[in-house]
Simulated assay, not measured.
Amino acid sequence: MGDNVNPLLAPALRPGDVIAVVSPAWGGVGELPAATGRGVAVLEGLGYKVRVMPHAAGRSQWEWVSGSAEERAEDLLAAFADPEVRGIVCGIGGDHSAQLLPLLDMDLIAANPTVFCGYSDITSLHHGIHRATGLVTFYGPALIPQWGAVGGPFGYTVDHFQAVAGRAEAAGALPRADVEVHDGDFDAAEATGTPLRRSPSRPREVLRAGRGTGPLLAACLPSARHLLGTPWQPDYRGRVLVLETPEPPYDLAQADADLTHLRNAGGLDSLAALVLCRPYRFTAADTDRLHQLVLEHVAGHDYPVLARVEGGHTDPLPTFPLGVRSTVDGDELLFEEPAVVTGGPGPGGS
C-alpha cells in the first residue's frame, strides 16, 4: 500500500486536556521513577491532566521492553480510543517499537486522531501510523528525557511543542536555540540535582544551497532503517526529510551503514530537501566527517541539504510535525501549515 496522501489532523492539545503516557519500547517509566515523576509534574503544571497507561511502568521477562508487544499495543490503542485523551506522550525511546506495528488497528487510530509525540525509536510508530492513516504525528519531546529533565525542560522545548501541537496555525520558522547539550552523565545530574551541562550552539550550516518544499518526514536514522522493505516504510519521495542520530556507541561507521541502506532503498533519491540535526555527543571533527559522508551519499542529486539544525537527541528538542508542508530555504526550516485543528479532527491542507 502507498502512503495516505491526505493529512489527518488531531484536535489541538490545550491545557485541561488529558495526556496519556505510554512505553512502546523500553520501560523507563518504571525504571526511572524520579524522572517520570518530574515529567508528570511539569505537564500537570502546564495545565494538562496526565494518565499513565497500565503497562507503561511495567517490565517483561525481556528487560529491554516494558511488556509484551500485545500489552504495549493495548496501551497505545486504548489511549487512541479514549475520547478523553487528547495527547499521547511516549515515556522514552528504546529499540523495539516496531514490534507493535502488526498489532495496531490503524482504522481505530484514523477514527480517533490524537496528538502523538515521541522521538528516537518512536520513529517506527510515527512512520507506520502516518503511512497507514495520514495522521500528522509529532517527532518531539518525551516524558523522561525532556519533560522530566533535572532542572526542568527547556523553555524552547515547551514553547515549540505548544506552538506546533497546541495551536491551529502554521508554526512558521523553526526557532534557533542558543545552547546545545552533549553532556550524557545522567546519573551525576540525578545525584546532584544539577542540570546537564550546556554549551553554546554552533550555527546551522548549509551543506548544499537551495530551496525545497514538501511534506515533512522526521526520523532517527537507525530506527528508520528498521522499516525499510516492510509494509510500514513511508514514501520518501518529495519529502523534506529530517534525520538525526542517537547516543554513543552510535558512530560514523554505523551512520555510513544506515545511510547506505537508506540510499539503496531509494530513500535519498527524490527528496525535496534534507535536514540534519545536530549529532548527539559527536565531536566537531566527527560532525564535519558525518556531513561529508552525507554529501557523498546524496551526490548526484540537487536538493538542498541543511545541517546542524535543532532537534533529535541533542537538546533542546523542538517538535517536528510529520506530514505538514515544510520548506527549507537557505538555513531556515519553515512549517507552512497547521499541524492540528480547532475542535474536532479534520483533514489537513495540501
Rank of each mutant, 00 (worst) to 15 (best):
P316V: 09
C277Y: 06
H226Y: 13
F320G: 04
P234G: 08
T283A: 12
E247R: 14
G330Q: 00
V340M: 05
L217E: 00
D235S: 14
G229A: 12
Y280C: 03
W232F: 14
G330P: 05
P248A: 03
S270H: 15
R325A: 12
G311A: 11
Y280M: 04
A253L: 08
Q254G: 04
D315P: 14
G267E: 04
T245Y: 12
P338R: 15
A272K: 03
L217F: 02
G266M: 09
D251T: 05
D258F: 02
P318V: 01
D329Y: 00
L274R: 06
D286E: 15
L227Q: 06
L317N: 11
L317M: 15
E336I: 06
P231H: 12
D315Y: 08
D288E: 15
V240G: 00
S223H: 13
G330A: 04
A273E: 05
V242N: 09
G238W: 06
V309N: 01
D258N: 09
Y280H: 15
G229K: 14
A272P: 11
D269Y: 00
D302W: 02
L262H: 00
L227M: 09
L252M: 08
T245M: 04
L217V: 11
L268C: 04
P215G: 13
A224T: 03
A255I: 01
D302H: 13
L271V: 13
R325W: 09
Y280A: 06
L274D: 07
V309E: 03
V305E: 05
F335C: 09
L252W: 01
D302R: 14
P321C: 08
R263M: 02
D258L: 05
V298N: 02
L322A: 11
S270F: 10
Q233C: 11
H291T: 01
D256M: 05
G300W: 11
S270R: 15
P249Y: 01
G266W: 05
H291G: 03
G312T: 06
P304C: 10
H301W: 07
R281C: 12
V240Q: 02
L217W: 08
A224N: 01
D258P: 03
E244A: 10
H301M: 08
T327Q: 14
E332M: 00
L216T: 02
H297I: 01
L221D: 00
P338I: 14
P246I: 02
D329N: 03
H313R: 10
T260F: 07
T230K: 09
D331F: 00
L216K: 02
D286P: 01
R281Q: 15
E332I: 00
A224S: 06
E310I: 08
P248R: 08
E244S: 12
F282E: 05
A307N: 10
V242M: 12
H313Y: 14
V240K: 06
H291N: 09
G229T: 12
Q233W: 02
L271Y: 09
P318H: 11
R325C: 12
V240N: 07
E310W: 07
E310S: 11
V242H: 13
R278L: 12
A265S: 14
E247I: 04
T260G: 12
A339T: 11
T327C: 12
S326D: 07
L259K: 08
V275D: 05
H261T: 15
P234S: 03
V275M: 09
W232C: 04
V298C: 07
R278K: 14
D288P: 01
